[in-house]
């Protein structure tokens, strides 16, 4: 075993570091995929503009922090959530509600194209507003300096034993975990969350007991967009941001929901972590470091193809 690890990927601590980094980013993938799952389970469509909500979330944080330097980072993240929620709600009312009401022919095809059209519009609106050059947000959180022997922090990095973990990613993962927890609490412990689940299980039965399915559609789409926006808002300090940053991000969430099973909440959480770890290990062990980053996304595609080949319903999927 030791020999195998050394042969493939260097030392054991290096491997451990890759896994931890993968889990950190995987939490954020899970958050994004949870949004897509929520949309799919309630509206029964896949939103092809999911990555653009992610992109807008990041740009809102950038704009707020760029113009108002005193604003704390968390407020900017909150504003990003509000903006993406509103965009989602307005779009759903204008373009998806007619579909739910049966005013559109061939609803499945319409849903794919109209969400893709929204992605197109949002990309170019942001290109017009922000320009094509990459934007970078400075780290908006620094650790207090602690030394507990095993766990040691500097302002930018956390050391777990000898393994360094970048602070901005840990911060992003913590916010994502809080958002995930809040979302799961909302879904499983509040009346509105139950209503969302009821609509996803049986629209007509939900309508009979007094839930308005159309309002739940709007809520689900807006919340889904908001989760993607949150993911973007916490990652904008990690990656540099261009208007096309959402395309690979949405490709990743597609891989996750197919891996976890379309419409399954536990599936999207587990799938996100799996994708994060696989990507991190694959990139870290890629023989040629110069092209390793480009192949980061390829592992997702390989997982996608394998799932379609072996078990198209995914890990936790119930139906096709």
């Amino acid at each position: 075993m030791e020999w195998l690890i050394a042969e493939a990927c260097g030392s054991f601590p290096y491997l451990l570091r890759l896994i931890l980094e993968g889990l950190l980013i995987g939490v954020i993938y899970s958050l994004m995929a949870l949004g897509l799952t929520l949309i799919f389970s309630v509206l029964n469509i896949v939103s092809f503009s999911h990555g653009e909500f992610y992109m807008i979330g990041g740009y809102v944080v950038y704009t707020v922090l760029h113009h108002f330097k005193q604003v704390p980072g968390l407020v900017a993240v909150f504003l990003a959530a509000v903006v993406t929620f509103l965009i989602g709600a307005v779009f759903e009312r204008l373009f998806l509600q007619p579909m739910a009401k049966g005013q559109v022919d061939r609803p499945n095809e319409y849903a794919i194209l109209v969400t893709f059209g929204l992605a197109f519009v949002l990309q170019f609106v942001m290109l017009g507003l922000m320009g094509p050059f990459p934007k970078k947000v400075p780290r908006f959180f620094s650790f207090p300096e602690i030394d507990l022997g095993f766990l040691r922090t500097t302002r930018t990095t956390l050391f777990l034993g000898k393994i360094p973990l970048p602070g901005s990613r840990i911060f992003a993962a913590i916010i994502a975990l809080i958002a995930l927890g809040a979302m799961l609490y909302f879904m499983y412990r509040t009346w509105t969350g139950w209503a969302l689940q009821a609509v996803s299980q049986d629209r007509n039965a939900a309508a009979v007991v007094g839930i308005n399915p159309l309002n739940m559609n709007t809520l689900a789409f807006a919340l889904g967009g908001m989760l993607a926006g949150l993911a973007g808002a916490v990652l904008v300090s990690v990656f540099s941001w261009v208007p096309w940053v959402g395309v690979p991000a949405s490709a990743k969430s597609f891989v996750i929901i197919v891996l976890g099973g379309m419409g399954s909440i536990p599936g999207s959480l587990v799938g996100g972590l799996i994708l994060g770890v696989v990507e991190s290990l694959g990139t870290g062990c890629w023989p040629n470091p110069a092209t390793a980053q480009a192949y980061r996304d390829v592992f997702g595609l390989v997982i996608f193809a394998l799932v379609l080949l072996v078990k198209p319903t995914g890990l936790f999927g119930r139906k096709l």
Partner: peptide
């Protein structure tokens, strides 16, 4: 073999990657 969404999902990932 699957419903039409899968081709759209797979091809968008394939194209970008």
């Amino acid at each position: 073999r699957l419903r039409s969404t899968y081709l759209a999902l797979f091809t968008i990932a394939f194209a970008e990657i």
